[in-house]
């Protein structure tokens, strides 16, 4: 009973916060409304016993949303402030399409004869997930790992204007490197950090 109450409160909250994302007056509020939607949608996961994944979603989404907030500062620096914002195109069409999608999917959900539940959750679901990733689903793990690595590299390449040739010169020999803010962690300052030499 208590579980059902928590579920409904969180589900309705998640949907409301999701709607709020596109209705509130400022980017900051939109970002944190999205965060609220994620956190509220993660609670049902916890109810299902997926404690690790639920907490992981919360953790990841907080970090992502805060990083998103930093990008907002980069591109729009005025703090706080509430100003009505409307930057939509084709509002009616989008509304029709998304409402239609919802109706079709919802009808499907209610009409489809879903399969019967088979088996019971293992005693330690987190352990089962780890075992699957390191065993039967190793390929998934490899793809995730490589994908994240590729993302890091390509994101840096795309967004950063200066490469090592800009820093160290054409023959990569310039020391110290030419940085907008000098004093990077090069070999020299590393030795100083660890107290080797004065």
């Amino acid at each position: 009973m208590a579980q059902a109450v928590v579920f409904w409160v969180c589900a309705i909250g998640a949907v409301a916060a999701g709607l709020a994302v596109f209705r509130v007056d400022s980017m900051a509020r939109a970002t944190f409304a999205l965060l609220a939607s994620f956190v509220l949608a993660a609670v049902p996961l916890l109810l299902l016993g997926l404690s690790y994944l639920g907490i992981l979603v919360i953790l990841m989404m907080i970090m992502e949303m805060v990083v998103m907030a930093v990008f907002m500062i980069m591109y729009m620096m005025n703090p706080a402030g509430l100003m009505p914002m409307s930057m939509v195109h084709n509002k009616k069409g989008s509304l029709a399409i998304s409402t239609g999608t919802f109706v079709v999917l919802a009808v499907g959900v209610l009409l489809v004869d879903w399969p019967q539940r088979q088996g019971v959750p293992p005693p330690d679901v987190t352990f089962a997930l780890g075992e699957a990733l390191m065993g039967s689903h190793m390929l998934v793990m490899l793809v995730i790992g490589l994908g994240l690595f590729a993302t890091i590299v390509s994101a840096v390449v795309l967004s950063h204007p200066r490469g090592r040739y800009d820093r160290f010169g054409d023959d990569l020999r310039r020391r110290p490197p030419d940085d907008p803010i000098p004093g990077s962690v090069d070999a020299r300052s590393l030795t100083r950090i660890f107290g080797v030499g004065r």
Binding site: A28, F32, L35, I62, M63, M65, V66, A69, P79, A80
Partner: peptide, 11 residues
């Protein structure tokens, strides 16, 4: 992170 950012931005 989120809390401090909100407090800083919100002020």
């Amino acid at each position: 992170w989120a809390a401090l950012w909100m407090a800083g931005w919100g002020s």
